[in-house]
């Protein structure tokens, strides 16, 4: 078995904090991610494979205990699951979509997932993101792709307040540094 290296293994210092608290930042290391592109009759087939209907409304999610489908575009979803479950998911989707044009791609390693939680998570993101994340607009079933500072991200709200930020692996270090800097005024705690 080889040593696996997550995007931020070289910068995360668990337990460190640079302020009196307010925000907790976690590197989730690996989150299973499957990019699904499908349309037409394949939509129903994909729903059967997943066990729930794909969310058709823009920037919404649907899911169950094992996976969550995030709308990325009118024929594109990111299926998020625990790391290690993606191969099975890919197998199920590929089998169900055998006759429908589709693309089922493992992109688990393409993105880091940084979790920002705490009462000040929203104001921290507001320092670099033009999206309106007010709960009235951006509720629990929402997802959005946007920019935080100069990094493209997918923002997924989490239970209990806060967000999972999906960011291209090569940008993860930049976004991490940016979040630490932006969160400094609220106090930010790195959790392991």
């Amino acid at each position: 078995m080889t040593v696996e290296c997550a995007p931020l293994d070289n910068v995360v210092r668990p337990g460190e904090t640079n302020g009196p608290s307010g925000i907790a930042l976690t590197d989730r290391r690996f989150v299973g991610q499957v990019n699904l592109r499908v349309r037409g009759s394949g939509l129903t087939a994909a729903g059967h494979a997943l066990g729930y209907a794909l969310p058709m409304a823009a920037n919404t999610t649907a899911g169950d205990a094992t996976s969550r489908a995030c709308w990325l575009g009118p024929d594109e979803w990111l299926i998020v699951c625990d790391d290690g479950k993606q191969a099975e998911l890919i197998q199920q989707l590929s089998a169900a979509l055998a006759i429908d044009p589709n693309a089922v791609t493992d992109v688990t390693d393409a993105r880091a997932v940084l979790r920002i939680a705490g009462a000040c998570a929203r104001p921290v993101l507001a320092k670099g993101c033009t999206l309106d994340l007010h709960p009235r607009v951006f509720g629990a079933d929402r997802v959005a792709q946007s920019l935080i500072a100069r990094a493209q991200v997918m923002i997924l709200p989490i239970e209990g307040g806060g967000y999972d930020l999906f960011v291209a692996r090569s940008f993860a270090g930049y976004l991490w540094d940016w979040l630490l800097d932006a969160g400094a005024e609220y106090g930010i705690r790195v959790e392991g």
Partner: peptide, 14 residues
């Protein structure tokens, strides 16, 4: 008035 093309690059990429 001008009809123009845009792509939502950091969003849905349409």
């Amino acid at each position: 008035w001008h009809r123009e093309r845009w792509m939502h690059l950091a969003g849905c990429r349409r």
